[in-house]
Structures are given as C-alpha cells and as structure tokens.
Nucleic acid binder design. Structure first.
Lengths: 115, 115
DNA sequence: CGGAATCCGTTAAGATACTG
DNA sequence: CAGTATCTTAACGGATTCCG
C-alpha cells in the first residue's frame, strides 16, 4: 500500500532497487513489456497466466507509481488500456536480461546434475 | 490451460532468478560480501542494522543452500563463522552493481524533484 | 474490457527469550 | 559469538463477485 521510497536511506540503493522491482511479477512484466513494446491489460493477464486481476492491477499500479511503466487509457467502448516501459523502466532491461541469462544457466546446471 | 507450460518456459528464468535473489536482505548481503570479501555473522548483523537474528540466519541458510555463499565454521571458543561469496554468487555482483547504480540515480532524482 | 471490492488463507517478517 | 525456539503481527497473494 505505502512502502515507498521515502523510507530508504541513501546508503542502501541496493535495497532501494530490490524493493522497486521485487514482488512476484514485476520482473516478468517489465521483461514482457520490452519484448512487446506495448501490451494491453488483458494480454498481460494471459501471458502471466497464473495472475489474478487483483495482483495484476496492484502490481501495475506500483510500477506506474514508481515511474517504471506508462499507462495509456483510450476512452472508448469497450475500454482499452495500454502499458509500456518508461525510460527509467527501460534502464532496467539490461539487468533483467543479465539475470534471465544467469537463471538459464542455473536451471541448466541443476538439470545436468540432479542430486 | 494446456499451453501454460510453453508460455512459462522461455521466460521462467526471470522468475526463477528473482526468487533466488529476492527477499528482503539477499541483495544487500551479497553486495556487502563482495565489498568485504569475508564477513562474520556479527559483522553482517551490524551492517544490516535492522535485521533480526532469525531473519539473518534464515537468509544466510537459503543463500548457502542455493550455493551463492560459503559458510566456514572455526571450531574454537568463542565460535567464529565466516561468510563469503561462491563463484556462482560472484557472477551476480555485476548486475547487483548495475542495480545499485540505478538505485542511486533514482534516489538522486527523487531528492531533486520532491513532488 | 479493465478493472474495484471484499473476504480469507498463507507466508514473510519482527520481538523476545534462551543456548552451546 | 553465533545462533535456536516460540510467538505474534504484517504483508502477500488468491478466489470470487460486481461495476462503468
């Protein structure tokens, strides 16, 4: 609800950053948004097939508040909302990509040596 | 329902990696360990000034199980335990550093424009 | 279509006391 | 010094229903 950036001191930018992109779906959402450039609410929900509307909405709001994604509303019927990365959000992509590759290697390792 | 696996497959490594280094203190612990090369339990506890023994121990155990840190016990009195990064853990340092710098910039931005 | 609102169980995390 | 053990609280996340 309200765990935002004022709490964190300048000395813990690692902590700060992890909070901004922690959470169960944030990394994946940012990643999918850079893959597709722009995604509608329903499309995101389909891709994150296990997410509930509550969690998705909540997560998107947090990312928006943190200025990592844009939310563009088309006032038409039926309604249409598109999400995309902000510049600040795009700055995180190299990191997420690095992490993704690292995760791939770890998964591969674990598969090679199933103890 | 039946396409869930293939959708999840190529991107789960993001999810996987986030789970593995998520958690409230993991990023900071890894970062501090690369800064100091090796740290004792008590030293870590002082640096992470707000952590409880329970959380610290639990987090260290998880990192150890995930093979991201080493735990070296000196059988002497009083006891002494030193923690350090494994090779796999060190692979994560560049990206934690990236994230840290990003966090720095964000904090700076927020301080310049307190809305 | 893109949510909001409510209820509820599970897990993460904190406080405190104690130990080899 | 480096933890355990217990208990309590807070946050996370899910299911369902409803709405403009």
């Amino acid at each position: 609800m309200e765990n935002k950036l004022e709490i964190c001191q300048p000395t813990c930018s690692v902590d700060y950053a992890f909070r901004r992109i922690g959470g169960k779906y944030k990394g994946r959402i940012l990643w999918y948004l850079q893959e597709h450039k722009t995604l509608r609410y329903g499309a995101l929900k389909r891709i994150l097939s296990d997410v509930t509307t509550k969690m998705l909405t909540q997560t998107l709001r947090e990312l928006e508040t943190d200025n990592l994604i844009n939310r563009k509303v088309y006032h038409e019927v039926p309604p249409k909302v598109e999400y995309s990365l902000t510049e600040t959000g795009e700055e995180l992509i190299p990191f997420i990509d690095y992490l993704r590759q690292w995760g791939d290697r770890q998964i591969e390792k674990a598969n090679r040596q199933p103890q």
